[in-house]
Design a protein around this nucleic acid. Sequence first.
DNA 1: CGCGTTTGACCCGCGC
DNA 2: GCGCGGGTCAAACGCG
Length: 555
Amino acid sequence: MDKGWGLTLEKSDHFVNKPVFGFNLNSGLDHLNNNKGLSMFPVNSKGGEEQQASPHERRVVRGEVDFFSEKNRPFNALVKKEINSHGEARDLDVNTGLQLVTANTRSDQSTVDDGMSSDAEDKRAKNELAQLQVELERINNENQRLRGMLTQVSNNYTTLHMHLVTLMQQQQQNSRTENTQQQEIVDIKSEEKKHENGGSMVPRQFLDLGSGVATEEQSNSISEERTISGSHNNNNNNNNNKLELSGNKRTGRDESPESEGWAPNKALKMNPPKPVEQSSEATMRKARVSVRARSEAPMISDGCQWRKYGQKMAKGNPCPRAYYRCTMAVGCPVRKQVQRCAEDQAILTTTYEGTHNHPLPPAAMAMASTTSAAASMLLSGSMPSADGLMNPNFLARTILPCSPNMATISASAPFPTITLDLTQSPNPLQFQRPPAQFQVPFPVGLQNFAPVQPNSVPQVFGQALFNQSKFSGLQMSSQDINESPQSQPQPQPLYNADTVSAITSDPNFASALAAAISSIIGGSHPNNSSSGSPNNANVNTSNSNKSGNSSFQGS
DNA sequence: CGCGTTTGACCCGCGC
DNA sequence: GCGCGGGTCAAACGCG
C-alpha cells in the first residue's frame, strides 16, 4: 500500500498493527472547543514517514498528531515511533522527546484493537474519514457563506453610512443657512430683539467644549460666524486661504487636501476668518478619545496600519509617549498617541484624534466606530447644557449606560477628551480574555472566526450605543436627560435597536456590527463622515524609555 | 534599496 | 520676554 491511514482518538497513537488514518480537525471548529475531539492525521509512507513491518503491519515512524489540550504538549506534535527488540512500540514527541501515552500503557484507548481485521478497520476508518471530510466541506461552505454575508453587510453599512452622511450634510447646510439668517437678524436688529432668537438655535456645539475651556479657535469661530453672516461668499475664499496656510507652515507636509484636518493648529490660528464648518472641523479634529486597556502584550491589533513619527518623554511619566499616524490612506489625518500609565505600566492608554478619510476594514470598523461615536457625542452640539457646558456624567452615562464608570470626560485636558476605561470590569463576565495577550476588546469580524465571547466588551458598547432612548437624549439640548429633559421635537434616530438586532441576530455579527452601526446613530456629525474615528492599533511599546520599539500593524 | 523606526531639533502655545 | 512642555519634522539609522 502506498498510503496508510491511521485513526487515533484521544492521544493514542496505536499505530502498530493498524493502518493509521488521519486528517486534522483542529484547524476547524475544534479549535474553538479547546481542541477536543478527533485528532487525525495523514501518513505518507512514501516520504519515509512510514515503514512496513509486516504485510499487514504499518508502523508510523513520523506523523503529525493533534493532541488535546494537555499540559506541556503542543497541540500539533510530531510523533516519533520507537520499537524495541521485542517489537514493543512507544511514541515520542519529536519536539519534546517526551514519551507519549501509547496503547501498551493505556487500556482505555478508543483505538484499542477491537478484534476487527485490518481490512475491516481500514474500511471503517475510511468511512469515518469520508464523513469527516463531508463535515469539513460543509464547515468550509458555511465559512464561505458567512464571509459573504459579512462582506455584504459591510458594503451595506458603507452605503448607508455614506447616504447618511450626505443627508446630514444637507441638513447641516440647511441648519447653517437658517442660523446664518438668524444671525444676520441679530446683527442688524437692536439688542432688545436678540432675545427673540432665543440664542438656543444658534449652534453651540463648538462652543465651550472641553468644559468651559473656550479655545482661541472657538472664540474665533464664534466671531467668524457673525462675520461671515454678513458675507456668505466669503466661504470659498476662506477655505482657500485655509488650505494655503495649512500647507505653508511646513513644506512637503500633508500634501493631500484630505489632510487639512491635520494641518498644524497654528495654521488654523493664523487664519483669522474661518467659516463655521472649518471651525467645526478643527474642533472635531481636536476631539480625542482615549482607550485605557490593560495590556501586557506589546501589540494591540485593531486592523489599522500606523506609522510612528515621534516619541517624547512626557512629564510625570517615566514611559515615553509614542506618536503614530494612520497610513492606511495617503493623507489620512488620524493620529494617535500611545503611552503606558505611570501608575500602572500594565495599562496602556491609546488616544485617538481625527477622522479617517478612507474605508476601513471590518477589523478596524468596530473600534473606529465606537471611538467615532464617542467623539461625535463629545462634540455633538445638540447636547450643551444650560450653562453651555457639557455634563460629563451625562455623556458618560450616555456612552456606557451600563457602566458609567467606564467613560469619563476630561475637563482639564486642552482638548475635549473622552476616556473609555477598559481596565475596569463592570461585569467580570464581560471581560474574559487571556490575561497575557491583550486583545482589542472589539470583534475583529469573522474573517478569522476568532472566538468572540458573547458578553465581551463589544456588546457592552453595542448595548450602550444601541440604546435608543439615550441617543434620543443626545438630541436634546438639556443639561441632563435625567434631570431636565425638554420637550422639544427631536429628530428620530434612523435606526433602532430592534432593527439592528434582527439583522445581526448572530452573536458574532451582532457584536461585530454593533459598534459600527452605532456610529451611524451616534456619530452623525457631518464632519464625522466615512469611517469614523480613530482606530486603535497594535501597540508595541516597550517599557524601556529609550527605544520604544513600537510597531503597528493592521490585521 | 525601500520602508519603518529612532531621535535630536524645531515650532508653537501657554504660564509666569 | 522667557522657559517649559507638547507635538511634529526629518535626517540618520536599522532591518529585511
